[in-house]
Computed example of a mutant assay.
Amino acid sequence: MADIDVFDGHNDAVQFIAEYSPSGRDFLLRSETGHLDLSRAREGGLIGGLFALHAAPERPPENDLIITADGYEVMYAETVDPLYARQQIEAERLALESLIRRSGGQMRMAIDVDEIRAARAEGAFAAVLHMEGAEAVDREFDYLHALHAAGLRSLGPVWSRPNIFGYGVPFAFPRSPDTGPGLTDLGKQLVRTCNGLGIMIDLAHLNEKGFWDVAALSDAPLVATHACAHAICPSTRNLTDRQLDAIRDTDGVIGFNLSVNDIRADGHLIDDTPLDTVVRHIDYLINRVGEDRVALGSDFDGAVIPRGIKDASGLPHLFEAMRKSGFDRQTLSKFAFDNWLRVFGLTWKNSTSA
């Protein structure tokens, strides 16, 4: 299944590119490190994706992983300082822009559906700007407007920690995603502002109360760029059936996360997870929300993914496993490409609907 074009709903590659990190890798050269570079993307049929900007904590906590009797809990630092976050986000954004310029046309920044389609037709790789956690955004939203003008088209209000906009869901298993308060009043204003600008709201990493706050406020389809089903794997990061139904009912999309500890029923961080297990999880999601509302949200360079895929070059192995399990060509194409463009067309301003 190497002839399927793929658009990916989430990757963390920007934090590892040479333009951002002096010890990082050259995205334009093939590497065996991490999951994603331009060569491996082409080998896997990947023609574009949402590139996440993310502010890491200044001082990561020590002993952040707690093993419990039946699972795990991960402790993270408190809210990142907004000025520090903005410095990181700007450095990452400028690094991605520098990479795209250096690519000599092999990569493009895309801000609407037409530009993604044009890049695909002309053999260029389309990068769409996403931000994972809004710590860098000021209370007046001036920086949000600046980011939108620079190409930002997708925003997760929180990562898995609290900020002035809401409460991220902590990493834990087995546990409900209902872990605390939802959006703050400022977070609700952020949703309305993003709706007005045509910035897609990403529900990944937001706790359940925050999810329902967005659902009550937003006039756009509900989207989680990288998550799985809580009914199969009871991780806090995964979505309950009721949440999945809300995504279905707004004609939104769930990006299927390739992180093994959110796919496996036992929540174990084991890369030797069979592709049959992966496909059964995808099948559950499609049966729940429909074939038009599940897409790929790999979390490349941000997760442990199944060994049978390994990296972006191995995506055809996933599609072949899906084909063997009974998925037809149309469903595969929707999962790989069409569903993202459809929801972008419904969400982004001045975009041609897919």
Rank of each mutant, 00 (worst) to 15 (best):
S298F: 02
T273I: 05
G255W: 11
D70A: 08
S23E: 10
H226W: 13
G48E: 07
D12P: 01
T225M: 01
L152M: 10
N163A: 03
K349P: 06
Q15T: 04
L46A: 11
A149D: 15
D219H: 03
A121Y: 10
E291T: 06
L190A: 08
E122W: 08
D185W: 08
V253I: 15
G168I: 03
D178T: 03
N207V: 02
I270H: 12
M107E: 03
I199Q: 09
P82C: 00
C233P: 06
L315M: 13
A136K: 07
Y143I: 11
T250D: 02
M200P: 11
P221V: 02
E90D: 15
V158W: 06
N257V: 09
R237P: 03
S351Y: 07
C228T: 15
G105L: 07
L144N: 09
R323T: 13
L28E: 11
T193A: 12
H205L: 04
L36D: 05
L155C: 08
E208D: 08
Y167R: 06
P22G: 03
K324S: 14
S298Y: 00
F300P: 10
V253D: 06
A246P: 04
A124T: 10
N339V: 13
Y72E: 10
H130V: 01
A134W: 10
G187W: 01
R42S: 13
A336H: 00
V14H: 06
A2C: 11
F51I: 00
R192F: 12
A227I: 05
I263L: 04
S176A: 10
V74P: 04
L186D: 14
H226E: 14
A220P: 04
S39L: 11
G48P: 01
M75S: 13
D311W: 05
Y143A: 04
W159M: 02
E320I: 01
N350H: 07
G267Q: 05
G133A: 03
G210N: 02
H148E: 08
I164K: 12
T225L: 00
G255I: 13
H10M: 06
A204K: 05
T193R: 14
